[in-house]
């Protein structure tokens, strides 16, 4: 058994496999399938200060090797989170991370302060990249000054690990990554979904109620991989790779590109056991290639 432990700032992960926000519920939905404690960490569903109903149905469209979603951060708000969800996830013996969303800097701060009080939440992932909300969200992640400002303000009120989740809907993602690093981000995770669209030619209507939505799944993997590689070159803080990871080989590609850990998203819908299968697959790969420690593989791309 190779050593799969990795570190993301102060977080110690049993292995580099985490779950992507919005694709793993609050973890408990997977308790029937496997022991969630085996994962490196779980990122819970995106949370906002106040209750959000999200967008109208239809919110999903299947596309070649992927899907578009326009959920729009449906969640019951932070009070409900603290009273009803936190007590259920406290039990997990793995890193539990909250995905923090806001439409103003004040909202990000207020929410972060509430989450900061929760002892078992090991880190926050600052989502400045949601393409499915009208205000805020991706606006913060697509402008370098705004990304820097929100990171700076949240940093002031949060002393645990601060991960900033980057939007791929930008011309130069490395520049944004450097910007949030300079304002105190402890790690960056990327990518969130790509803004996309699907049309039903028969009805001549958009497939999503919001017309556009976020593309995820294997369709985005090559672009996500390229972005992770570019960002890993540009920053010193750890990079968490996300985008179309379906199996251990995909995860290894992200690690070779420079990711210290990965998040699995859409694959959880297709195969609920994906994360567990990846952890086993990583071990098999390391043995086969004579590595005894996964850290030796990070950024190990042979040019």
């Amino acid at each position: 058994m190779a050593d799969l432990r990795v570190k993301i700032d102060k977080l110690e992960l049993k292995n580099p496999v985490m779950t992507a926000s919005g694709t793993f519920g609050n973890g408990v939905e997977f308790d029937d399938f496997f022991n969630v404690d085996k994962l490196g960490g779980i990122i819970l569903k995106g949370t906002t200060l106040n209750h959000r109903e999200g967008n109208d149905y239809p919110r999903m469209a299947e596309t070649p090797s992927g899907m578009l979603n326009a959920v729009g951060l449906q969640n019951k708000g932070v009070d409900y989170f603290c009273d009803h969800i936190y007590p259920k996830v406290e039990k997990y013996d793995t890193n539990v991370i909250v995905n923090v969303n806001g439409s103003t800097i004040e909202e990000y701060i207020a929410l972060t302060e509430r989450i900061n009080e929760l002892q078992r939440i090991d880190a926050i992932e600052l989502n400045i990249s949601c393409p499915n909300v009208k205000q805020g969200g991706m606006a913060f992640g697509t402008s370098c000054p705004m990304a820097e400002q929100v990171t700076k303000e949240v940093r002031k009120v949060y002393d645990k690990t601060l991960i900033v989740k980057l939007s791929p809907n930008v011309t130069n993602i490395a520049e944004i990554a450097r910007g949030v690093e300079s304002q105190g981000a402890d790690a960056v995770s990327l990518v969130n979904t790509f803004l996309g669209m699907a049309i039903d030619a028969e009805t001549r209507k958009p497939m999503l109620s919001t017309v556009t939505g976020g593309l995820s799944g294997p369709a985005i993997k090559p672009i996500a991989l390229r972005m992770v590689w570019q960002v890993a070159q540009a920053v010193k803080i750890p990079v968490i790779g996300i985008g179309g990871i379906m199996d251990a080989t995909d995860a290894i590609e992200f690690i070779l590109a420079g990711a210290s850990a990965v998040q699995v998203g859409t694959a959880n819908f297709v195969e609920p056991n994906t994360t567990i299968n990846i952890i086993e697959g990583l071990d098999v790969y390391l043995e086969k290639h004579n590595y005894n420690n996964i850290n030796n593989l990070i950024g190990g791309l042979q040019l």
Partner: peptide
Amino acid sequence: NMMACGFGVCLCCVTKTHEGN
């Protein structure tokens, strides 16, 4: 309704009820 996961994690399959989605 159209579903992505089928077990309550993607929130894609919602219908409007008197208690919200």
